[in-house]
């Protein structure tokens, strides 16, 4: 150690920096409350479990998009490509007699990851518009390929004869969707645990740096291309997980999993929930599905109109202002809390 004039102040600064970084990744009470609530839902309201499973899978899909959009700043209009690949991989595997859910999940993630890795090189360069077009193009290509290769995918009729085995060899997928919900929630939970480490790691920070200023990111020594390839691959793998879950919990896969509306929908979910914060994806998925249900019950013909209108308003008001509003409301409801380590 060199001889600092004020050893304590330097040590203080290091401790302060450490505390700051620690606080950033600390588990928040709201987070714990959320998971308790989510897992508690497994034991009540059986009739809603199918819907909850669906929401959970949508949330997982949105989380995967958040990784590239919210953290690395890669816009995509074709993320369904990886969702769909995951779904077909799991479906074809189950169809051919390998119905074990967990191993199907792993294979699906692997297939999607390979596709993500290969196509990542296409989105490395170019502005947002280029990327929108490329991701859209890749997804359309896959859609058409799946359509044409009906010997493998069942074409427009979808995959027939998918038989999913019991989860962990014990829990059969039931009609209410309780197993499906537990399974999807478990996967989402594990992925979130992993991702909250990733986003606070040097790798995660490098992604934010690339998103914020690519020129400086390079000047800092960040190998931009390598990081983007890695995150795109990871994101594709997670989207593949979501696709596989969707296949396994419904025992059905059709061309719909690769459809454009899926890519648009997941983008919408992220816009609603807020990007670059992981949990925004979950909030977005919940809000989106409930809005969809409520609106379609009220106006079966025009619910998409209302979703669209809501979206326009959301974008006009701006995410940040909405967050401030949310925070203000929370501050009102919760009594003002003093920070326990409040000594200055």
């Amino acid at each position: 150690m060199t001889m600092p004039l004020l050893p304590t102040s330097r040590a203080d600064a290091v401790a302060s920096a450490k505390a700051f970084l620690g606080a950033q990744s600390r588990v928040r009470p709201l987070e714990i409350a959320f998971w308790l609530l989510a897992f508690a839902a497994l034991f009540v309201g059986r009739s809603h479990h199918l819907l909850l499973a669906e929401i959970t899978i949508l949330a997982l899909f949105a989380v995967s998009l958040d990784l590239i959009l919210g953290y690395a700043g890669i816009v995509s209009l074709g993320h369904a490509a990886f969702f769909g690949l995951g779904a077909y991989a799991a479906g074809i595997l189950a169809q051919s007699g390998h119905g074990d859910p967990l191993s199907g999940l792993v294979v699906a993630a692997g297939v999607a990851a390979v596709a993500g890795f290969v196509s990542s090189f296409l989105v490395l360069r170019g502005a947002d518009l280029t990327r929108l077009m490329i991701t859209l193009g890749v997804a359309s290509l896959l859609y058409e390929a799946a359509n044409k290769m009906d010997w493998l995918t069942g074409g427009a009729d979808g995959l027939q004869g998918i038989l999913i085995g019991p989860l962990l060899g014990r829990f059969d997928f039931d009609l209410y969707g309780t197993t499906a919900f537990a399974y999807a929630l478990g996967v989402l939970f594990v992925v979130m645990l992993a991702l909250r480490v990733v986003v606070h790691s040097p790798f995660g920070h490098a992604l934010r740096a690339i998103r914020d200023n690519r020129l400086r990111a390079r000047a800092v020594g960040i190998p931009v291309e390598r990081r983007l390839v890695a995150v795109y691959t990871l994101s594709a793998a997670i989207a593949g997980l979501a696709g596989a879950l969707s296949c396994q919990t419904t025992a059905f896969v059709s061309l719909d999993v690769l459809d454009f509306h899926r890519s648009a929908e997941v983008l919408l979910v992220l816009v609603i929930g807020g990007s670059g914060r992981l949990y925004g994806a979950i909030v977005g998925a919940v809000v989106f599905r409930f809005a969809q249900d409520v609106l379609s019950a009220m106006t079966p013909q025009y619910w998409q109109f209302w979703v669209g209108l809501g979206l326009v308003i959301l974008v006009l008001i701006g995410r940040d202002r909405l967050d401030d509003l949310g925070r203000a409301i929370v501050a009102r409801i919760l009594p003002a809390r003093r920070s326990p380590e409040g000594t200055p």
């Binding site: 990733v198 790691s201 995660g204 920070h205 490098a206 800092v220 390598r226």
Partner: peptide
Amino acid sequence: IETVALAVSERSGRGGDWWRRV
């Protein structure tokens, strides 16, 4: 902190670490 840590991490060859906090 985060900005400078990025540079330090990359220089020390740990910039790709994804399994631990900065």
